[in-house]
């Protein structure tokens, strides 16, 4: 059951990602991104991370994608124009991506036997439920990163103001 879910939605995520790159019109790309996000949410759910799955649907497929679609509509963006492809990018890019993919696959296959058995039991030991555990970590051990993220958001807002301004 789990394997079937993984194969179906993993494949869907990969196909969605390829489609995202292949589509010429931005709205089609945005819609394929939703496919990727939703399939990822299902994968998270099947791994037992309900909270992450819900957050993925609400934040990415909901909020962020709505924003994307709005921006595309407001900008009235049409078909993307193609410039002459960079030579270096086309020569190095694909083999590079393939090399990284092969390296990661090799590492994960090599460690297949022990994967997931590291010390994770101790880290997740005695977990009551996912959400209880996440909120506990968020307000004790990771309190500072959680709070400091507010500065990060503030900087991002400042950036939007600065970059969107009109020069006097």
């Amino acid at each position: 059951m789990q394997l079937a879910l993984f194969i179906i939605f993993g494949l869907l995520a990969v196909l969605g990602a390829f489609n995202l790159l292949a589509q010429k019109h931005p709205i089609n790309s945005a819609l394929s991104l939703i496919v990727v996000m939703m399939s990822l949410a299902v994968l998270y759910f099947s791994l037992g991370a309900e909270f992450l799955a819900a957050a993925q649907v609400i934040v990415y497929s909901g909020a962020i994608m709505v924003l994307f679609v709005f921006v595309i509509m407001l900008l009235n963006a049409g078909e993307e124009e193609h410039t002459d492809d960079s030579k270096v990018a086309s020569i190095v890019g694909f083999p590079g991506a393939a090399a990284v993919f092969c390296l990661l696959t090799f590492v994960f296959l090599k460690e297949k036997a022990t994967l997931g058995f590291s010390h994770l039991e101790s880290a997740l030991g005695g977990a009551v439920s996912n959400i209880v555990e996440i909120s506990h970590v968020l307000f004790t051990k990771l309190l500072l990163p959680f709070e400091v993220t507010s500065i990060l958001v503030l900087v991002a807002i400042l950036g939007a103001v600065v970059l969107a301004r009109k020069e006097l």
């Binding site: 990163p145 993220t149 900087v155 950036g159 600065v162």
Partner: peptide, 26 residues
């Protein structure tokens, strides 16, 4: 001394530098 904290700090410093790099608009 916690990698997640390092990451948030890195993002704060990088994002503000990205913006500052484009400050001479026009």
């Amino acid at each position: 001394v916690e990698l997640l904290m390092v990451f948030i700090g890195l993002e704060i410093s990088s994002i503000s530098t990205y913006i500052l790099a484009g400050f001479r608009k026009g």
